[in-house]
Design a protein around this nucleic acid. Structure first.
Length: 367
DNA sequence: TCTGGGGTCCTACAGCCA
DNA sequence: TCTGTGGCTGTAGGACCC
């Protein structure tokens, strides 16, 4: 265990690197004819079908298109945009390249999805200008793409900083800047505040991070519970002591699918559940995990969503056992409405290396 | 009217057991 | 024998992230 007084007194230097309109940028790089055109990527690339926008480039954003928006709505807002399907293989390959660049700068990296990462550069003895210049040049060389970088003493502030000057920016956010640069921002800019919390805060006349910071802790605990209330209290002050997570083990594998048209035929639902179970089993076997808890999810046409779970006595990666458990869960839901979505999840794992102790790389360097 | 997919974490509650 | 309590585990739902 590290000495907490030591870690508190040590000022960290954390970077948050965020690729600019990543999926769209990869597509534009390999298809130069898209240059200057609005590009929307999502679902099957067909705006007449069900799906949401994964990424819109900056030209499309000018028309109000943004990620998580239904493809049909995006089409209404920008019918002349180029609509493309998501090509995860292409984006993953670009992602591997950009993360290689980061790992060459510092081994202490936290992967955050396909297009972002945190990098701890506290121990790298070069200036911010040098280090961000090296990262930007490296990423440009290996992928042809640009990124935005935030620099701060913790992950929370670094992430906010990287969003301040997009695209292709570098922003330093010091703790001393919290009042002038963080507090005027809307609460939604804080990591962990989504649409529900934003609405809740608005109902008590809190719209900016500064107004949130002015609330006493007791009031936050009263409104949001102990854990989240405490988090909001600290986050509004730019306080975040969470470490970079350099090693990660999955806790569940799941597959779900939304039907193109809502389904009433239970045989179609059962067949889909069997197919999804098969995919989940492939994930378990591929990663050498066994699970004890199987959960299914059913979403009806009116968006009402139910989950049913069962925990079996032994860990398993058997397709038959997992399919049977999924069907047993399905029996516990009354299918009285058309079904929109079906999902299967396996969790409660017996790990591959339960008795093997992992140390983060950062400790390897210190020992 | 529209609202994906794959994850994590948290809370509340119920049942069991010492 | 009955009741209360607290911990643990499982279940269901919700919020959030990319």
């Amino acid at each position: 265990m590290s000495d907490p007084s030591l870690s508190q007194s040590m000022k960290k230097r954390i970077l948050h690197i965020d690729m600019d309109a990543f999926f769209a940028a990869v597509e534009q790089k390999r298809r130069p004819e898209l240059e200057g055109k609005p590009v929307v990527i999502g679902g099957q690339g067909d705006p007449s079908k069900r799906g949401v926008v994964s990424t819109a480039n900056y030209e499309a954003r000018k028309y109000g298109v943004h990620s998580a928006m239904p493809m049909k709505t995006a089409y209404k807002m920008c019918p002349h945009a180029v609509f493309l399907p998501v090509d995860y293989e292409a984006y993953s390959s670009a992602s591997v390249k950009f993360k290689e660049v980061l790992r060459n700068v510092s081994p202490v990296m936290e992967d955050v999805g396909i297009d972002e990462a945190y990098l701890d550069v506290t121990d790298i003895p070069v200036t911010n200008e040098e280090i961000t210049g090296r990262i930007k040049a490296g990423i440009k060389e290996k992928t042809g793409l640009t990124c935005s970088i935030g620099i701060a003493s913790n992950k929370l502030l670094a992430k906010i900083a990287s969003d301040m000057q997009k695209p292709d920016g570098v922003t330093l956010l010091m703790e001393a800047d919290v009042e002038t640069k963080l507090w005027p921002l809307p609460v939604r800019k804080l990591y962990g505040i989504g649409p529900k919390t934003e609405e809740h805060l608005k109902s008590i006349n809190i719209e900016t991070i500064g107004q949130l910071a002015a609330l006493p802790l007791e009031k936050l605990l009263e409104h949001f519970g102990n854990s989240y209330g405490q988090y909001l209290y600290e986050a509004a002050r730019g306080i975040d002591q969470s470490p970079l997570v350099t090693r990660w083990e999955p806790k569940s594998f799941s597959r779900e699918t939304t039907f193109q048209e809502d389904v009433r035929d239970w045989q179609v639902i059962a067949r889909t559940l069997a197919d999804l179970s098969k995919d989940v089993v492939q994930d378990l076997q591929g990663h050498q995990y066994k699970a004890r808890t199987i959960t299914i999810k059913i979403r009806f046409s009116d968006f009402e969503t139910f989950t049913r779970a069962m925990t079996i006595s032994d860990y398993t990666d058997s397709e038959e056992e997992i399919r049977k458990s999924a069907f047993a869960c399905l029996k516990r839901i009354e299918l009285k409405k058309k079904v929109r979505l079906v999902g299967v999840r396996a969790s409660n794992f017996q790990g591959r290396n339960k008795d093997e102790q992992h140390y983060p790389e950062v400790l390897d360097r210190l020992i």
